[in-house]
Design a protein around this nucleic acid. Structure first.
Lengths: 193, 193
DNA sequence: CGAAAATTTGACATGACTCAACTGGAGTGG
DNA sequence: CCACTCCAGTTGAGTCATGTCAAATTTTCG
C-alpha cells in the first residue's frame, strides 16, 4: 500500500486497523517532488494536507521587499499544510517548496473530512499531532520574544541537529528571523568550522 | 449547570447533547480567581485545562534576569494551559496569572482523557479548537520573524482591539517581545492620545 | 565544467535595549 | 479630604544588537 508510511507513523498514536487502512489508502495520493518545486504558491488555496515520506520542505512567506521568511520546515514523518487556507478555502499567503527531491502523500480536504466524520480515530490522532506541534511552536515563539539571535541559533542546533546538517544556513537564518549575514557573524564568533 | 458557559461555547463546534453535558458537568470545577492570583506556577505540573468564563489571564515565563515574557493571553471563552506540562506531567516553566478578577472552569487531565476516550465529540472539538489556535500562533510567529516592533504593535491593535483596551501597555510590550520603554516610544511616534 | 547559490567579511546605518529620572494616576490609610 | 505609596507610562542619553549593502570567495548542483 502506498500509504504504508502513514500507517507506520500512526503506530505512535492510535494505530489503524485493516479497514481504516483501506479507507485511508483510497484517499491518499503519492507524488514525487523535485527540488525547488512548489506544492503551494501564494494566492492559491491550500488543497492538500501533505505527509512527507522522504525529503524536506519549507513553508514561507515573501514580504513586500521580496524577502523570504521561513515559518516551518517538514522532513520525514511530518505533516505540512497552510491550515488556515486549507480549512477556510481562502487564498494562501504562503509558499511550500521542496528543499530536497521528495516523496509525499497527500490528502484532499473532502477526503480528510470524510475520515474525521467516519473514523473517530482520525480526530484523535490529528488532535494529538497538532497539540504536539502547538507546544513546539509555542516554545519557538517564547525563544523569539525572549532570546537574542545567538541563543536562538544555539537552541536550534540543539533541538534540530539533523535539520541543521541538511539545511543551508540561509534557510536557518530565515527561520530564526535574522539575515544570513548576521548568522554568518554569529557562527564565526561561536567558531563553527 | 456550572458548565453552561462551555456548553454555549461548544455550540460553535459540535454542540453537546444532554448526556454529554452531564458527563462534562460532573468533571468540571468552577473557581473564582483574584487579580494577580496564579493558577499555575513555575516548577509545578499544570494539572488543569482552564476555560475562562469571565476575566483575563496571562501565561508567561521569567528569564534568568527576572524579566517576564508573555506567551499568551486568555479572556472570555478561551482556554489556557501549559499543554506541554499538562500532557507530559513534567514541571512547567511557565506562570498563568489573573490580570483581572476572574471566573474559570477547570478540567483535570484524567477527566479530560475520560471525555476524549468516551465521547468522540471531545476529540473533534478540541482538535478544531487547537487547530484554530495553531493558525493564530503561526501568524504571530510570522509577524515576529518578519516585522519590526512598530508593525507588530499596529497589527496587535488591529487584531485584538478589545484586548488592547483592557491590558496595560507593559503587558502588550512583553507579548510583542519588546521593552515597555520602547513601546512607549513607538506609541509617541504613532501619536496615540 | 560552468552557472547559480551560499557564505564570509567589512563599513556603516538603524532598531531596540538599558538605565535613570520624572510624571501622573490609582489605591490606601489616617 | 489629604498625604502617601506604588505602579504604569514617558523621556533622554548612551550603548549594543542586528540590518543593509557591496564585494570577494567558496560550494553546490545541474
Amino acid at each position: 500500500m502506498t500509504v504504508q508510511p502513514i500507517i507506520e507513523y500512526f503506530k505512535n498514536y492510535l494505530p489503524l486497523n485493516k479497514e481504516e487502512r483501506l479507507l485511508l489508502d483510497k484517499r491518499t495520493t503519492q507524488r514525487q517532488i523535485k527540488r525547488r518545486q512548489m506544492i503551494l504558491q501564494e494566492n492559491f488555496v491550500c488543497k492538500h494536507y501533505t505527509f512527507v515520506v522522504k525529503g524536506c520542505f519549507k513553508m514561507y512567506s515573501i514580504d513586500e521587499k521580496g524577502s523570504e521568511h521561513n515559518i516551518s520546515f517538514a522532513a520525514e514523518n511530518e505533516w505540512i499544510a497552510d491550515l488556515g487556507s486549507f480549512y477556510s478555502e481562502k487564498p494562501s499567503k504562503l509558499f511550500i517548496e521542496a528543499i530536497e527531491p521528495s516523496l509525499i502523500l497527500q490528502i484532499e480536504k473532502q477526503d480528510l473530512l470524510y475520515l474525521f466524520v467516519n473514523v473517530a480515530k482520525f480526530d484523535r490522532n490529528f488532535r494529538v499531532i497538532i497539540e504536539e506541534k502547538y507546544i513546539e511552536l509555542q516554545n519557538r515563539l517564547l525563544q523569539n520574544i525572549s532570546s537574542n539571535a545567538n541563543q536562538r541559533y544555539l537552541n536550534f542546533l540543539e533541538q534540530y541537529p539533523q535539520l541543521a546538517l541538511r539545511l543551508p544556513n540561509t534557510q536557518i537564518a530565515s527561520y530564526l528571523g535574522i539575515t544570513p549575514e548576521f548568522l554568518s557573524k554569529i557562527r564565526s564568533e561561536i567558531n563553527i568550522q
